[in-house]
Design a protein around this nucleic acid. Structure first.
Lengths: 213, 213
DNA sequence: ACAATAATAAAACGAACGTTCAATTAATTC
DNA sequence: GAATTAATTGAACGTTCGTTTTATTATTGT
């Protein structure tokens, strides 16, 4: 047989991406065979090569678009003319919301870096570093303004990111806690961790957190 | 050829374990072939099967002994008759020290769980849960005693563990910060995060942290 | 309706995989 | 020093892998 009735390139490619994210997140990139992926989509393995020249190209595409999406989400969520505490709160909210919505894709982007070729690895890491740099800037400005009390900006940024991203490891929607509750708790933990002063009308105040979530 | 001069089962098995931890941490379990592992040890692939009946048995052994080592380390480091802040400080110190010393093994135990058979996965997760439970107990007792102010014990425990374990992702010995400095900063971040009261002579006080490290 | 193009199937490629087996040699035991 | 045991090799097994090639059919444009 050959082309099947109702076949559509765009739909097939989208189905391949979605199935690939799920399979890689569940079994790992190396453990996912192109035949298994094709079966998931309902197509023969050879058909995949119409959309992605190699298996690694597929992985890289998924990662690049995930990182690009993260950058865009922050660009959109980032407040203008806000004090450091409000900026930090926005960063935390955006980070947690984005990663909870994309648990599988985040797993792929974080755990399969070693399967990329050196220059592609560099590209992804560059995007990640740029995103993390935004957090460091907020922390530094907050520390300089006296709003935060931080010992080491770089180390604190890494600790916060690991803490926030770690949500996807244990969080399951529909269990004990809602996304709103989790986000609120992480916000207050973050604010305490950076020693945020609580004497202003910033978004860091618990009551405010509930309202602006 | 056959048995080689100077060959020794114990030495070979130890070499296999060490090489396996490094290879799996760097390239992933699925990406590590038995032939590549054997080459690293300086032996033929068939020789590996004298020590581990299957590839998965090798992985499981590495993970089980890592988790068992963590349990023993905490059993030894755990203070008796200490207030919650001191116990928490001991937990943080032990956790960071253990994981920095065993970066590769930790990577294996955290990232290759999906390659285990269901019942072996359950065994490893049980060990992990038991270890995490210790932290939850400390947090709960501290909260009940009024030493900590915590919104959600379980969520705080997960956040702390993710934050601390995350050290191995970015920490490289011999770079900007020493293990001692990193541990001290993580200790004070932890104490702020749990809202530890600073009005007692606990190990949570920065000056004390420096002394008891 | 007919040509051009898009989307797939089917089969095959060589390479690599985990694992097994028989043969062989080194070390140990008696 | 002969018998036994421990450690390893080299070759092979069947399977699966990513990928390529060729043929075939559906859709689109004219």
């Amino acid at each position: 047989m050959a082309r099947t009735t109702g076949s559509d390139g765009e739909r097939t490619e989208a189905a391949v991406r979605e199935a690939a994210v799920n399979l890689i997140a569940r079994h790992g990139y190396e453990a996912m065979s192109m035949r298994r992926l094709a079966a998931e989509v309902g197509v023969q393995a050879a058909a995949l090569y119409r959309y992605f020249p190699t298996k690694e190209d597929l992985l890289f595409t998924l990662m690049r678009e995930h990182m690009e999406g993260l950058r865009q989400a922050w660009e959109h969520a980032r407040p203008t003319d806000a004090d450091p505490a409000e900026q930090l709160a926005a960063y935390v909210r955006n980070h947690i919301a984005f990663h909870i919505e994309r648990r599988h894709a985040t797993h792929v982007s974080n755990m399969e870096l070693r399967s990329l070729s050196p220059d592609r690895l560099t590209q992804i890491l560059r995007m990640r570093t740029a995103y993390e740099k935004e957090l460091r800037s907020i922390l530094r400005e907050g520390a300089e303004a006296g709003d935060f009390s931080i010992e080491d900006t770089g180390l604190t940024a890494m600790a916060l990111i690991q803490m926030m991203t770690g949500v996807i490891v244990w969080f399951r929607p529909g269990e004990r806690l809602s996304v709103t509750e989790v986000t609120a708790t992480y916000l207050s933990m973050t604010m305490r961790l950076v020693g945020a002063r609580m004497d202003t009308d910033s978004a860091a105040r618990p009551s405010d957190v509930q309202r602006t979530l």
